[in-house]
Design a protein around this nucleic acid. Structure first.
Length: 487
RNA sequence: GGCGCAUUCGUCUAGUGGUCCAGGACGCAGCCCUCUCAAGGCUGAGAUCACGGGUUCAAAUCCCGUAUGCGCUACCA
């Protein structure tokens, strides 16, 4: 076991989108596998036909690939222990269920859902310590069972839990956890439609796929004793368990759709980077023990260990994600930024205009430290793509004085003398004009910014001028003089 | 109700018996830089380490209780 390279799996059910909690689980599995030179497997748990969602599987697979958590074995890449979709493995579960029945560790149950409901109600009313199935069908004779089976009566297969010693679980993040056998319900293993329940399918598959470490959300901890019993009954080696703390809403309940975006597709759509999403989600429940917070995937792989995952749940704090996303954007080179900015342009009203890479690279550099998401980009820098259509009234009121047009005309004639000016030349010219007029630089800078961008915020003025170019700058100043009229 | 897990600034966390009257980050406030907005730098407010008992010369750190929160309790996963 010690020298065995680990095999781990992320086993989502395809509900239509990838939940960020699922992303975190997938990431930890991935990091653990890659850190230890192991294998990361993706298995689809689609055994609930009532929750079948058209297209959900493809979407899930696409999203996993987008974030970069590409499995070594899975529905798309195949592998030595496929198929990796549970609905394609029905006969396998049936085989082991039969085996359990054979050995008396499971039994057929013909109880109707009505009877089950009634049973629950009476137990609830009687305030019994614990509500669970009454083993009614355990006492059926062999003859009766085969008769009813032959008649095609609807039935399930249940786990037969008998009194005995406590079920002990060794969990890498939580230590030892014990459960009394009497508290374990007689879980349905195979449903009446022939599909297995999660409990049956996950144990059978984890064994057959040679999973060494089961890394999953804490919500599975209470049902782990059922799984351990199944391993025992089937005489299989029990894998290691690591139950991850939950991701929480601001009110500390389990992270849910009701309280904000929960699908990684949503974040992708908003222009979050996969690198910051991964970085953020990794830090919810794990830390290397130092103060480092900015990680690349590669660094996460290098440093990750299950022993350092936190025990308690973590609130999904969007403010911190936003900060981290801005950090990741700033950390990108202009060249890395370029394709994303092009994509934003493509989505914008400027999609029909063309701009050179050289130009866009400069815009990227200027805007980099002013973005929270790629989605902010166009909105905050539209003046690089078209001349201002309007001028912010607040800024006009504050910065545009009766004498401003005259000053700007003087500036224009100074700018006109320049040849291929860059940053510094604009500055020198402007300072010179200000001096001649005996005014502060701000008296020119702010109106020019307004004239050229229509707004009062953005990169340094000279940087904007350099990017826009002399002709455009002069044209825009003239237009502004023409259009901005004071009452 | 039963079973289980958890509990350090608002939030994410560091801390594994003395260096912690608890460190970092986000957010918040202020200052600096400055042509604006960001970024960056600095400073500050913010945690009697859930509470109560032990153990120990010494506890956020070990033990036991209590409280609170959360999860599970389906022929859902």
């Amino acid at each position: 076991m010690i020298n065995e390279t680990p095999r781990v799996r992320f086993a989502p059910s395809p509900t239509g989108y990838l939940h960020v909690g699922g992303l975190r689980t997938a990431l930890y599995n991935y990091l653990f596998a890659k850190h230890n030179n192991g294998t990361f497997i993706l298995r689809i748990e689609d055994t609930d036909r009532n929750r079948f969602v058209e297209g959900a599987l493809e979407n899930l697979l696409d999203t996993m690939e987008w974030v970069g958590l590409v499995p070594d074995e899975g529905p798309r890449q195949g592998g030595i222990s496929g198929p990796y979709i549970q609905s394609e493995r029905l006969d396998i579960y049936k085989k082991y269920a039969d085996e359990l029945i054979e050995s008396g560790k499971a039994y057929y149950c013909f109880c109707s859902s009505e009877r089950l409901e009634e049973l629950r109600d009476t137990q609830l009313k009687a305030k019994v310590a614990q509500v669970k199935y009454d083993k009614h069908c355990l006492n059926l004779s062999k003859q009766e069972i085969s008769d009813r089976l032959k008649n095609g009566e609807s039935h399930v297969i249940r786990l037969n839990v008998e009194p005995g010693s406590k079920v002990k679980i060794k969990d890498i993040v939580r230590g030892n956890v014990e459960f009394d056998r009497s508290t374990i319900d007689y879980q349905v293993l195979i449903k009446s439609d022939g599909y297995p329940t999660y409990h049956m399918a996950n144990v059978v598959d984890d064994h057959l796929m040679k999973i060494t470490h089961v890394i999953r959300g804490e919500e599975w901890l209470p049902s782990t004793p059922k799984h351990v019993l199944l391993y025992e009954f089937l005489n299989w080696e029990i894998p290691e368990f690591a139950h991850l703390p939950l991701l929480l809403n601001a009110d500390k309940s389990k992270l849910s759709k009701r309280q904000g975006d929960v699908a990684v597709e949503d974040y992708r759509e908003k222009g979050y980077l996969k690198s910051s999403l991964l970085n953020f989600v990794a830090m919810l429940g794990w830390s290397a023990g130092d103060d480092k917070e900015f990680y690349t995937l590669k660094e996460l792989i290098e440093n990750f260990s299950l022993e350092r995952v936190q025990k308690s749940g973590a609130v999904f704090n969007i403010d911190k994600l936003n900060w981290l996303n801005a950090e990741h954007i700033k950390n990108q080179t202009n060249e890395e930024l370029l394709p994303f900015l092009k994509k934003e342009l493509e989505k914008s009203e400027f999609r029909d205009k063309t701009f050179s890479d050289e130009y866009l690279l400069k815009v990227a550099g200027a805007m980099k430290s002013r973005l929270n998401f790629y989605g902010d980009f166009i909105e905050r820098s539209s003046y690089f793509f078209e001349e201002p259509k309007t001028y912010s009234q607040d800024i006009v009121d504050k910065r545009w004085k009766p004498e401003t047009p005259e000053h700007l005309n003087k500036l224009i004639s100074e700018f006109e003398k320049l040849e291929n000016p860059v940053h510094d030349q604009y500055e020198i010219s402007l300072k010179k004009v200000a001096e001649e007029l005996n005014i502060g630089g701000g008296k020119l800078i702010h109106p020019v910014r307004l004239a050229v961008s229509g707004i009062g915020v953005g990169p340094g003025l000279y940087e904007i001028l350099e990017i826009l170019g002399k002709e455009e700058v002069i044209k825009r100043i003239k237009t502004a003089i023409d259009k901005i009229k004071l009452d």
